[in-house]
């Protein structure tokens, strides 16, 4: 199996505070991996470091997109990271509220298309063709994420669960090889969570996009993940299959407590 994301020795300091402490982590092609850990463990900081929002103090982030060469991406701007094939969602939903659902997804196509100002004004044949491709591609993703009935709604008017799905759809539009989901199930009701479970599995199986997610919903994590990383105080304290993790005394002691399935 190919490793597609390799994080080595990642450290992030904010002033005197060490948010990430020599973290190693990797994701292999085709897996669903999860990062768990108590609040403030540094999970979102980790995402921000590997997506270019923060520039890590130390360490390396390497990607090997399927069929492409290995590449170091730390220090790149967020948009370059996305262009390189890693797309993310946000813990506190960050859609474009006054744009329609379709347009939100169309934004995701931006980095895969190229027409500029002149093209937009003249609207020549190639621009038109590209525009049509953007629309079709985006609509197709909306169908896959069961949002196609909401195409022309404004994003801000969507119910909560649909907003979370739309964020995933938008990220998918950038054609990533790895999707980073930051607490995708936060605030969802059981029904929505079940649908999310299905959606994530489908994305992996049908779109062959690997997934790395931060999640607190242990039931979802246990049922979905192939591997789990446990973080605490900016460090990785354990990793392994769901089975390993629930039986790992360090994890139980540090974080899960005895009542994980209570």
């Amino acid at each position: 199996m190919n490793t597609i994301l390799e994080v080595k020795d990642l450290t992030m300091d904010f002033g005197g505070l060490r948010a990430l402490d020599h973290l190693d982590l990797n994701v292999v092609e085709g897996e669903i991996a999860a990062i768990i850990g108590p609040n403030g463990a540094g999970k979102t900081t980790f995402f921000n470091c590997i997506t270019g929002i923060y520039n890590p103090t130390e360490g390396e982030v390497l990607i090997s997109p399927p069929g492409k060469k290995r590449k170091k991406i730390n220090g790149l701007k967020p948009n370059r990271v996305t262009e390189n094939g890693m797309a993310r969602t946000f813990q506190n939903i960050r859609l474009f509220p006054d744009m329609t659902v379709l347009e939100n997804v169309m934004i995701g196509r931006h980095c895969r298309t190229s027409s500029g100002i002149v093209g937009a004004i003249l609207r020549g044949r190639s621009t038109n063709k590209e525009e049509k491709e953007i629309v079709d591609f985006s609509y197709n993703i909306l169908k896959k994420t069961s949002l196609s009935h909401l195409v022309n709604e404004l994003a801000k008017n969507l119910p909560y669960g649909a907003q979370r799905r739309l964020e995933i759809a938008r990220a998918m539009a950038t054609e990533p090889f790895l999707l980073l989901l930051d607490e995708p199930a936060a605030g969802m009701n059981p029904q929505e969570t079940r649908e999310l479970d299905e959606l994530i599995t489908r994305i992996r199986d049908e779109e062959s996009i690997s997934i790395l997610m931060i999640e607190h919903d242990m039931k979802l994590v246990m049922s979905l993940s192939d591997r789990i990383f446990v973080m605490d105080y900016g460090r990785k304290i354990a990793q392994g299959s769901p089975y390993d993790i629930i039986n790992n005394p360090v994890v139980i002691k540090a974080y899960l407590g005895e009542d994980i399935y209570a």
Binding site: F14, G15, T44, N48, I53, F90
Partner: peptide
């Protein structure tokens, strides 16, 4: 002043 970290 100190540069504020961006909250995401």
């Amino acid at each position: 002043g100190r540069a504020a970290a961006q909250k995401v």
